[in-house]
């Protein structure tokens, strides 16, 4: 057939032209690299973008989120130090779709970690999650993330405690939130708040392990308070007599104590030579910050 010749020629043409096109495409892709992402941020106003997306904000948000992940992934892969476009991408993503929880959560993690694990921008991360909370006030995950950002990256324990506490009262919250709130109140030195939070946890929580843990926290705080008080008494005794007490009996005789003081678990405290107070069984009061024997370390108890 004489149609055979054009058919063969055309088939070859399709193959050759398309292959060459692919080679060029590969070059084009290689040249463009991250310029593409930079270009995608030229329109940096989410409001404008929203209008331009003709109502498909969600879709556009997904696309921007994908870009953010790609951007982070590619930078992470080559251990980059600079992640300057990460926050703008995440910001646009979450403003286009304020309900995209995953973008706040992972975005915050990417932002907060120190390079090369992340962008090293904890303040930006906090800002992102705060925006998230503003739009999703009922999602405890965001409080959880924000609390840890405050505690670990900003060392703001009081703030973290407050965040966890806010998250702990949400409808479908995780029981651990109360514990975290109380822990960080303790760590932040806000003892009275911590006490209150632990008591709430102890009374309300259903989980026996958490309740046990809360009780240990409460007793440890009480013990710390008791030890502090005892130390004050001892220093007053020293001022009056000029020497340290040898046993609690000295203090009882001086009218400063009513008897041998007991820790919250019912064990008597020990008075060491030189006027130091020590608990007998630190493992029953694992969260004490005072009165532990030298070299004692708390066994790590995994939280439920």
């Amino acid at each position: 057939m004489s149609t055979a010749r054009p058919t063969v020629t055309l088939t070859l043409a399709v193959g050759i032209l398309f292959s060459c096109a692919l080679i060029l495409l590969h070059n084009i892709d290689a040249r463009r690299g991250s310029a593409i992402i930079r270009e995608s941020l030229y329109i940096s106003s989410p409001a404008a973008l929203k209008r331009m997306s003709l109502g498909y904000n969600g879709l556009l948000a997904d696309i921007y989120w994908t870009r953010a992940v790609q951007y982070f992934g590619s930078h992470h892969a080559r251990s980059a130090e600079e992640y300057d476009l990460l926050y703008p991408l995440l910001d646009i993503t979450t403003q286009l779709d304020p309900k995209l929880i995953v973008a706040y959560r992972f975005g915050a993690t990417f932002l907060a970690e120190r390079p090369p694990m992340g962008a090293g921008q904890p303040e930006k991360a906090v800002q992102l999650v705060r925006n998230g909370i503003q739009h999703n006030p009922d999602d405890w995950h965001l409080y959880y993330d924000l609390g840890f950002l405050q505690a670990w990256n900003l060392h703001d324990y009081v703030g973290a405690s407050r965040t966890f506490a806010n998250g702990a009262v949400l409808p479908h919250t995780n029981p651990v939130m109360g514990v975290l709130a109380a822990s960080y109140a303790t760590k932040g030195g806000d003892i009275s708040t911590a006490m209150l939070l632990w008591q709430t946890t102890y009374q309300n929580n259903q989980n026996e392990m958490i309740r046990q843990n809360a009780l240990q926290h409460i007793q440890s705080i009480q013990s710390d308070e008791a030890v502090t008080e005892l130390e004050e008494v001892i220093s007053r005794y020293e001022e009056q007599t000029g020497h340290a007490p040898e046993s609690f009996l000295n203090l009882v005789y001086a009218g400063m104590l009513k008897g041998t003081p007991l820790d919250p678990t019912g064990q008597p405290y020990e008075l060491l030579p030189g006027g130091k107070i020590q608990v007998q069984d630190p493992d029953s009061l694992p969260f004490i910050t005072k009165g532990a024997p030298p070299g004692w370390k708390r066994k790590t108890v995994p939280l439920p």
């Binding site: 055309l10 043409a13 060459c20 084009i28 040249r31």
Partner: peptide, 26 residues
């Protein structure tokens, strides 16, 4: 960039038109 894009556009379109001609031929 201009050269690459021009080349790409011509090659890709060429392939498409050749494919169209191939179908039309038969």
């Amino acid at each position: 960039t201009v050269a690459l894009n021009l080349g790409y556009a011509l090659l890709y379109s060429g392939a498409m038109v050749a494919a169209a001609a191939l179908i039309f031929q038969r």
